[in-house]
Design a protein around this nucleic acid. Structure first.
Lengths: 238, 238
DNA sequence: CGAACCCTTGATCGTGTTCAATAGGCGTGG
DNA sequence: CCACGCCTATTGAACACGATCAAGGGTTCG
């Protein structure tokens, strides 16, 4: 494995036209003519877990597409309290405030090692007005972000914590043979997502394990032995 | 006052080019040429307080601009629990899911008597791809909705309820002479906004009044005798 | 004038917080 | 490679906040 001294490493310029996640990304619908209009370089970057990608208040010059890993979008309130407003999943766009104003409205931190593309805002604002295909895609991505934020809000912040955790797992779980695996993050981060303290997350995990809803709790993941059972629990509770 | 038998009344076709709130609305930047491309009628409607405007799951054929009053955007979770994900303020767009998919993702209800414009989605999807001005405005409105949703999330759902209520008042307060007035809604609705029961809202209001942070609590509004005091409270608590 | 609805208030209970102590991983340096 | 130390996670006990159940008081509208 490479030694990375600074927290992020430049991986080269992206070849968007042949990108492996292009179908789910911003440039999904672009044609060759559109691509020929892109002149600024789109950089391909990787960050270590817990590295900061941008800070609330920074001048917003680029938006980002996440290729893999997870990112937290953190909002700092005027009283200094923090709140995670959204988790970015692979294929999602973030830092879209760049299209609107001068500064980022939130901070973005890597939750895991991540790999992402940085797209200068001028590419989008010029191309967006010329290409109906990109226009459509931008509107779609904005919409997805809004829906994700709202569903996060509605589902991850309502009810007893164990139920919220269950919904959280169901959102992130990946099937793997007869069971599924969901990622865990630092307990404090998970607390910030659900407006709860880290001790409470810990206790809730323990209690869910006792009930057989999850197993093999580690620092970084849980196993879900029975997805259907968890789904029931997330709806009815207990 | 007019008697309105059905819950909403058609107020005529909108004259968008001369709309009084046009500067803050979707069509702010359009020019005469753009307007000439609008063929479907944009209706001007009014609804009584508590009327439903559209329901989660309805076929999404139009988006809306709120002219005056307040609207709640309600999300119903799979377990039947409800949550208010956003309050629409005058000048805001809502029902934008129409641009993305087939169905509305939430339900919209009037919190007060409201006055709004209904814009068929085909106007936007065709015009949006032809007019860079409208494109820019759509992206902007979409971004505003996302930021509002996220700040709602972050500020109205973190901390003790009295603090959350304080932030809520500060968001909605209108200055009026030496003091300010903030609207109140049904206690149950306020509870749905903050993930709290109506009794708790009631108690919090009483306690804030005792502390001199608010006064003259009625069914529909509170007075804020000292905005600066409330602002302090919303940051430091007590 | 009465009825429905909403808001308020009280008492008790449950959930999450807080403070504190302990245990477990992981990386570093010997 | 092991031992130490730091950081994070877990667990416990007392406490605070909001939920719940229940009763009473106000408004509004027919």
């Amino acid at each position: 494995m490479k030694t990375i001294e600074i927290k992020n490493a430049w991986q080269g310029e992206s070849d968007c036209e042949n990108c492996s996640i292009r179908s789910s990304a911003l440039f999904a619908e672009l044609n060759e003519e559109d691509f020929s209009k892109i002149h600024s370089p789109i950089d391909d970057l990787s960050f270590e877990a817990y590295a900061g990608i941008y800070q609330q208040g920074d001048k917003a010059g680029s938006l980002y597409t996440l290729r893999n890993g997870y990112i937290k979008i953190l909002h700092i309130n005027s009283d200094g309290s923090e709140r995670i407003v959204r988790i970015v999943l692979p294929g999602n766009l973030f830092g879209m405030e760049a299209l609107l104003g001068e500064a980022y409205e939130h901070s973005a931190y890597a939750l895991t090692n991540v790999h992402l593309c940085r797209i200068p805002k001028n590419i989008i604002s010029t191309l967006g007005e010329e290409s109906p295909r990109l226009h459509r895609q931008i509107v779609k991505k904005w919409g997805e972000a809004l829906l994700q934020s709202e569903s996060w809000f509605s589902e991850i912040n309502t009810g007893r914590i164990e139920v919220r955790l269950a919904r959280f797992f169901l959102k992130l779980a990946k099937e793997s043979g007869s069971f599924a695996i969901a990622p865990l993050f630092k307990r404090e981060d998970m607390g910030l997502m659900m407006d709860v303290k880290c001790e409470t997350i810990s206790r809730a995990l323990a209690s869910m394990a006792e009930q057989g809803l999850i197993s093999n709790i580690t620092r970084l993941s849980v196993q879900i032995p029975n997805l259907e059972l968890l789904r029931q629990f997330s709806k009815r509770g207990v």
